[in-house]
């Protein structure tokens, strides 16, 4: 990872479901829990609304890793959006494997509105994993400006 200088910090895009994980992130914040500041949060109505192209586009436009987080099974505000998402993500993982994209680049979690601590833990893990992998590079647009 020659591009990974000592100062390099990964950029993580986190798609958080409005009803659970986003509230979980809020709780982590108001509880003053510490977690790495590498995450850019995108609030989505439901993890089931995350089209795989959002994930791929994030990697293309400069993210080093992506996290998608939704409600625990049974807690979905729309009853089963997260269960539909679960299948989609299982398939996406297989697809990314075929083209050599490391498993830890794209991760998934269930975080409820009451799990501020879990949110902080998940972020710490994802940031640590992606840091160990180094910059994404592969899907990203070579030499072009990425999101600031």
């Amino acid at each position: 990872m020659n591009a990974a200088s000592a100062t390099w910090e990964p950029k993580i895009v986190a798609f958080l479901c409005h009803w659970c994980s986003y509230a979980g992130a809020d709780l982590a914040g108001i509880s003053r829990l510490q977690y790495p500041p590498n995450v850019r949060v995108v609030r989505v109505p439901c993890s089931g609304a995350v089209n795989p192209i959002y994930i791929l586009k994030a990697l293309q436009r400069g993210a080093d890793g992506v996290l998608v987080s939704g409600c625990h099974p049974g807690d979905c505000h729309y009853l089963a959006g997260n269960l539909v998402a679960r299948r989609k993500f299982a398939l996406l993982k297989r697809l990314l494997e075929q083209v050599g994209i490391e498993e830890q680049r794209v991760q998934f979690s269930w975080v409820s509105a009451a799990e501020g601590q879990k949110f902080a833990d998940v972020i710490r893990k994802v940031v640590g994993d992606v840091k160990a992998l180094g910059p994404a590079g592969f899907l990203s647009k070579a030499g072009r400006a990425s999101c600031p």
């Binding site: 099974p73 269960l83 679960r86 299948r87 993500f89 299982a90 993982k93 991760q107 998934f108 979690s109 269930w110 998940v122 893990k125």
Partner: peptide, 8 residues
Amino acid sequence: EDREEFIL
């Protein structure tokens, strides 16, 4: 019952 071993 879909497996979800990959979800954190």
